[in-house]
Design a binder for these strands. Sequence first.
DNA 1: ACAGAATTCAAACACTTGTTTAATATTGAT
DNA 2: ATCAATATTAAACAAGTGTTTGAATTCTGT
Lengths: 246, 246
Amino acid sequence: MFFTKSYKTNRLETVLDEPLSRSNDHQPKERLLDAAEELFAAKGFGEVSVRELAAAADVNVAAVNYHFQGKENLFQEVISRRFSIQRDRTLQGLQSLLDQTEGRPQVEQVIQVMVSEYLDGALSNSFLTMITREMHGGKGGTHVEFFKQMVAPVFAAISKALIAARPSLKQEDLNWVIASIVGQIHHFILRRIKCKSCQDMPEALEIMLKAFPALALDQDEYVRLTTNHIARFSTAAIDGMYPEEN
Amino acid sequence: MFFTKSYKTNRLETVLDEPLSRSNDHQPKERLLDAAEELFAAKGFGEVSVRELAAAADVNVAAVNYHFQGKENLFQEVISRRFSIQRDRTLQGLQSLLDQTEGRPQVEQVIQVMVSEYLDGALSNSFLTMITREMHGGKGGTHVEFFKQMVAPVFAAISKALIAARPSLKQEDLNWVIASIVGQIHHFILRRIKCKSCQDMPEALEIMLKAFPALALDQDEYVRLTTNHIARFSTAAIDGMYPEEN
DNA sequence: ACAGAATTCAAACACTTGTTTAATATTGAT
DNA sequence: ATCAATATTAAACAAGTGTTTGAATTCTGT
């Protein structure tokens, strides 16, 4: 259901390579995908109307159904074109870390890779915003495929890398440790996004910045500091709970 | 806007003491509040229709507007009656910890109180589910009051308690540390909720349980284990990053 | 330049949304 | 018991939803 390429003319490959810029010299179908990605991420699936999508993409309302056979399918197309890119970036980042360190990376390095890939991907395009949102809300059934194809492989790769870094970590421990790291990542992502959406509400913005000044930084700096914090925090935790055995 | 008691006959005090049972021997207004709390938590504000609410509460559709002057107000009433209870539980838990330890608690104790109150509250009634959901999604503007009245005092109390436990922690550090802890809490809550909502989808359920077996436990046990993990993980992190100075 | 397919469009579709109405029923104080 | 205030009801409301239609337009291969 997730990967049903409902394109009439199958151009999935080229679509995946699109820079996804906000310029509107694309074809209507691409414009719709771009607009949808942005709107779904900003407001959630249920809060975006087809007419709103059409207006944002500057196409006719019927275009949604002509090109995607419905709003739901458009949503899934939006996800599936970003989805695998993000996963592959993380997998490849972890792999190249293992290569560079001859299979014995530092714990902090593993977490650093995992966090920075995730954060950067989540904040620079709105894909992971959507994922996070739909993981938390959503109908439920949609996520099975997502879990199998996105979460599971990444989870496995992280487990492998962490065990390579700290052999005293057992699989059961990893379930908890990785959950703690992922929880932090999501929280720092959502905080940032929330802050962005309050940009035009001075009162709300002021409160958020007071509670968390780092939100005022530009994105690169935010990613850098946050990655650093999560990696140090989590590494310290792992060092404390599962010290190296010699 | 958050605390506008739009009751015709003001019975806010008694409402706050209601056990919120699922029995329907309440008055229609209470039944609506109960049904709304459950449905909003399960599906989100936008995904629940007024007719659905009315049916669940076994009242007429018009009752929503008669008693609450609109769906939005009902939502805010639902929040505001649970809202302060949860906050006060945490504040009071932290205070009594400080009392018992003569102002010098252990870091792990502070986190333990904070996490267990939050987890227990979030999982036994659906209030915090709603909050979490609306924090992540939602319009944005609604949250200002919530932030001021709920988040800010709790944040301040936790900061105070953590500094009492580990004076080497500075306010700037606390912004990051507390965020890391809260992120973990939210993640373990949402995981649990997600799992509940997959109860009738064997395939999805199996995947989730395989990735995280603790989700199969009953709630008390889940809260216990999770509280324990987060407290140990975070304490180890704090010990590593901000050791006691002697 | 033409025919045929693919696309775009305004309009309408059937349906759901939150809210209101006006009539009816219930309640509670005198 | 009475009467006004309160509460509940079925029905209707206007506005918005996702989707479909069929004619008009643009594109494409010959």
